[in-house]
C-alpha cells in the first residue's frame, strides 16, 4: 500500500485527550468523533485536513487514555497514515486493531514542515518527503503484528482462530 498526501505536523507527547476530548466520547460514531479530531491542540485541523493526508509527529504519539475513539477519529477525518518517532503502546495496538496505518520512523517529524508532500510505502516501510527530497526507513513491524495486519485486523484474526467464517 502506498499513500501520498500533505503532512500535518505535531510535536511529541500528543495525548488522546487532545486527539479526541472526552466531552465527545458520548458517541461511537466515527464521523461525529472525526468532527472534533485534534480540536484542543489544533482547532483548524478538521477544516484543513484532506482525505489521504498524513500526520507526522514526534515521540510518544497517542499517550494517555486508552480510548480507541482516538484512532477512530483520526481515521474518520480521512488521515491515511500516522508516522511518528514512537507511539504510546495502547494507541499503537488500537491503531493496528482498527486498521489505521501507522509507522514508527524517527527523524521524519523534525525535518518535515506542515503541508510537505509525503509518500508512505507501508509494505516496505519507506517514508519519502517529496517536498524536501528526503527518504526514511521505518522500523519493521514485529512478525506477529504483520500477521494481524494480514488477517485484516484483530477481530478477523480472532474469527479465524475460532473457526468463524
Amino acid at each position: 500500500m502506498v499513500f501520498k498526501g500533505r503532512a500535518h505536523k505535531f510535536g511529541r507527547d500528543v495525548d488522546t485527550d487532545v486527539i479526541i476530548p472526552a466531552r465527545y466520547l458520548n458517541t461511537t460514531d466515527a464521523q461525529e468523533l472525526a468532527a472534533h479530531c485534534m480540536e484542543d491542540i489544533d482547532p483548524g485541523f478538521v477544516k484543513r485536513v484532506q482525505p489521504g493526508d498524513i500526520i507526522v509527529a514526534g515521540e510518544n504519539f497517542g499517550c494517555g487514555s486508552s480510548r480507541e475513539q482516538a484512532p477512530v477519529a483520526i481515521k474518520g477525518a480521512g488521515v491515511a497514515c500516522v508516522v511518528a518517532a514512537s507511539f504510546a503502546r495502547i494507541f499503537y495496538r488500537n491503531a493496528i486493531n482498527i486498521g489505521l496505518p501507522i509507522l514508527v520512523c524517527a527523524g521524519v517529524a523534525a525535518e518535515t514542515g506542515n503541508g510537505d508532500v509525503i509518500e508512505v510505502n507501508l509494505d516496505e516501510g519507506l517514508v519519502r518527503n517529496e517536498t524536501r527530497d528526503k527518504s526514511y526507513q521505518a522500523d519493521r513491524f514485529p512478525e506477529f503484528m504483520q500477521e494481524l495486519v494480514a488477517a485484516g485486523g484483530l477481530m478477523n484474526h480472532v474469527k479465524q482462530r475460532m473457526g468463524l467464517k
Binding site: 486508552s66 495496538r93 480472532v158
Partner: peptide
Amino acid sequence: TGVGSTDLAAGMATGEVW
C-alpha cells in the same frame, strides 16, 4: 494492563490476550 475496545472485545470472546 490497559487496552483498547477491540482488544477487549477479543478478550471477551477468547479469554486470551496477545
